[in-house]
């Protein structure tokens, strides 16, 4: 079932009089519960495509259909609300809030996404997910005391605690070594499949492609 459709998406950056077209009419469809990886050389437009699809920057032209709405015509407040409630994000770096414990990072995301549930259920949910990512013993730890792999696992837990419909992952393993990258990808696949979350991921690492359902190659601003 198609859940996310990108049609004729264009993005042009202007630098004074110089205009550079980074996306030249991209078409892409994401199916529910599947992981799609965007690959391609640097400057091919894959990160730009991901950030526009995630509502982090506007498109110059084209459509992004999701949940019955065209995201490209939404206001920034509407887009923020979609990001908070229906999207999840995993970045190259974990980007955790330095003054919150592991448990509080997840609690914050539940607040942001306005998930209404009794406090007890909320605690159970957090505990369950931390167990799934193997960090239930570190729930009181602050980010500064976590390893790179642990931080990224917390970031994944934070990205899916509110059960988003789409997860955007921008090179989630780029800052990790090969062993940890595989652990993270395995975890990502396991969780998104269990929770039936659609995932769009950018990666440079071909080793990670064995964990995804579809590979979309981009070149010079187009899907090839």
């Amino acid at each position: 079932m198609d859940i996310f459709t990108i049609g004729e998406l264009r993005k042009t950056f202007s630098n004074g009089e110089v205009k550079e077209e980074v996306l030249k009419g991209v078409n892409l469809t994401l199916k529910k519960g599947e992981i799609t990886a965007l690959v391609g050389s640097s400057g091919s437009g894959k990160s730009t495509l991901l950030t526009i699809a995630a509502g982090l920057q506007p498109a110059s032209d084209g459509k992004i259909l999701f949940d019955g709405h065209n995201l490209t015509s939404m206001t920034s407040e509407e887009m923020r609300s979609i990001r908070a409630k229906k999207f999840g994000f995993v970045f190259q770096f974990a980007h955790l809030v330095p003054f919150l414990t592991v448990e509080e990072q997840l609690d914050l995301m539940l607040d942001v996404s306005e998930v209404k549930m009794p406090k007890e259920n909320r605690q159970q949910e957090i505990h369950y997910l931390l167990e799934r990512v193997g960090l239930s013993h570190r729930k009181q730890a602050y980010p500064a005391s976590l390893s790179g792999g642990e931080k990224q696992r917390v970031a994944i837990a934070r990205a899916i605690i509110h059960k988003p419909q789409v997860l955007f992952a921008d090179e989630p393993t780029a800052s990790l070594d090969s062993k940890r990258s595989k652990e993270i990808m395995s975890l990502l696949r396991d969780l998104t499949k269990t929770l039936n979350i659609t995932t769009l991921m950018v990666t440079h690492d071909e080793e990670m492609l064995s964990y995804v359902d579809h590979v979309v190659k981009m070149s010079d601003g187009l899907v090839v």
Partner: peptide, 13 residues
């Protein structure tokens, strides 16, 4: 600034 950007990205008002 960086933290605010991330918080905004995940949907904080």
């Amino acid at each position: 600034i960086g933290l605010y950007g991330i918080l905004k990205a995940i949907g904080v008002k």
